[in-house]
Amino acid sequence: MTPWEVVAILAAGLAAGAINAVVGSGSLITFPTMLALGYPPIVANVSNTVGLVAGGVTGVLGYREELKGQRERLLKLGAGSLLGSVVGGLLLLSLPAKAFQVIVPVLIALACVMVVLQPRVQAWLSARQDEPHPHGGPWLWLGVFAAGVYGGYFGAAQGVILIGLLGIFLDDHLQRVNAAKNLLSLVVNLTAAVLFLIVAEVDLWAALLVALGSLVGGFVGARVGRRLPPRVLRAVIVCVGIVAIVKLVYG
């Protein structure tokens, strides 16, 4: 590995960690960077997942104030993320990458629509429920499980999907929703990373460089993201989602 390659992966990891803390989709920076440096797609994907765990930890720590009072709901939803991540990771190791080429952009586009319409849909759901579900109800759990499957398989833009789901089904402030998204994303990445370290080919040097960069990026991203008003944060989420769709469809 040349010095320029080290710098490139570190920089990509830093940017990915920051973006993941605010929105998600950091893998759309690190994964293409490793591909451009000559890493095989599966090796790049699993190494990237392992490396981004560090950024997920700092992103969660940066949002610890917004996580207060969410313990019970996150324990329930976290189980869905964990199970989904195991399924997604096993799919990555057994299915061709083309299996998700059509559905992934559709999921991200749907998530962007959910983020935009979240206030109205949330109000509509609340009006129809006799007793609101503090944990989002069974449909949210299934949605979080599905997002975990996707996150364990590829991971890019899982944050956009999660925040769209959580924002609609949880009657809470968007920053607290974003904090929950960070923790659930970390559960997905950590679970997949453990699986990949056991049964997949991981480039440990590349993963370490991504980890070092994302460790700093996650902390910086959390500090910035917590200061964004809900409308601005919502706009950033949608913009990142659109970029993710373009990158996935057109490469």
Rank of each mutant, 00 (worst) to 15 (best):
G69F: 09
C112L: 12
H135D: 15
M114K: 11
K68M: 11
L61S: 03
V87R: 13
W124V: 03
R120L: 10
V60G: 09
H135I: 13
G56D: 03
E72C: 01
L90N: 11
P138I: 05
G78M: 06
T58Q: 05
D130P: 00
L74N: 00
L61G: 03
W124A: 01
Q129M: 15
G80W: 09
L83I: 08
P138G: 08
V121H: 07
L95R: 11
Q129C: 10
V60H: 12
K98A: 13
S126N: 12
S85V: 01
V121Y: 07
V115C: 04
V57E: 06
S81K: 05
A123V: 08
C112A: 14
G80A: 15
V102K: 13
Q118K: 06
P119F: 07
E131S: 12
I103V: 15
A79M: 12
S94L: 05
R120M: 09
Q101P: 02
L92P: 01
P132L: 12
P119T: 10
M114A: 14
L110R: 09
K76W: 00
L91I: 06
Q70Y: 08
C112M: 15
A123N: 05
P105H: 10
L110K: 10
P132V: 14
C112I: 07
I108T: 08
L77P: 01
L91E: 01
V115S: 06
Q70G: 06
K98D: 12
I108G: 07
P138Y: 05
R128D: 09
G62T: 02
L95M: 13
G69K: 10
P96W: 10
A79C: 02
V115A: 09
V102W: 14
V113N: 03
Q129N: 14
G56Y: 02
V57K: 04
A111L: 00
H133R: 13
L83R: 05
G84S: 08
R71G: 04
G80L: 07
V57G: 04
L95T: 08
P132T: 15
A109P: 02
A99D: 11
V106R: 01
L74D: 03
H135N: 15
V102M: 13
V121G: 08
G88F: 04
A123M: 08
H133G: 05
G89C: 05
G80C: 13
L75K: 11
R71Q: 11
K68A: 14
V102G: 07
E66G: 04
R128H: 15
R71K: 14
P96L: 12
F100D: 01
L61C: 07
H135M: 14
F100R: 08
I103Y: 11
L117F: 11
P134V: 02
P138E: 06
C112S: 14
P119M: 08
T58I: 02
L82R: 01
R128I: 02
L83H: 09
R120K: 15
L77V: 01
L107P: 00
P119I: 07
S81I: 03
R64C: 03
R128M: 13
G56E: 06
I103A: 14
L77R: 07
A109E: 06
V87L: 14
G88S: 12
A123H: 10
R120S: 11
V106I: 15
G69M: 04
L83Q: 07
V86C: 00
K76N: 04
A111K: 00
G137S: 12
A127T: 02
L117D: 09
A111N: 00
A99K: 08
G84T: 06
E72G: 02
V121S: 07
L117M: 14
V116D: 02
L61Y: 12
S94G: 03
S94W: 01
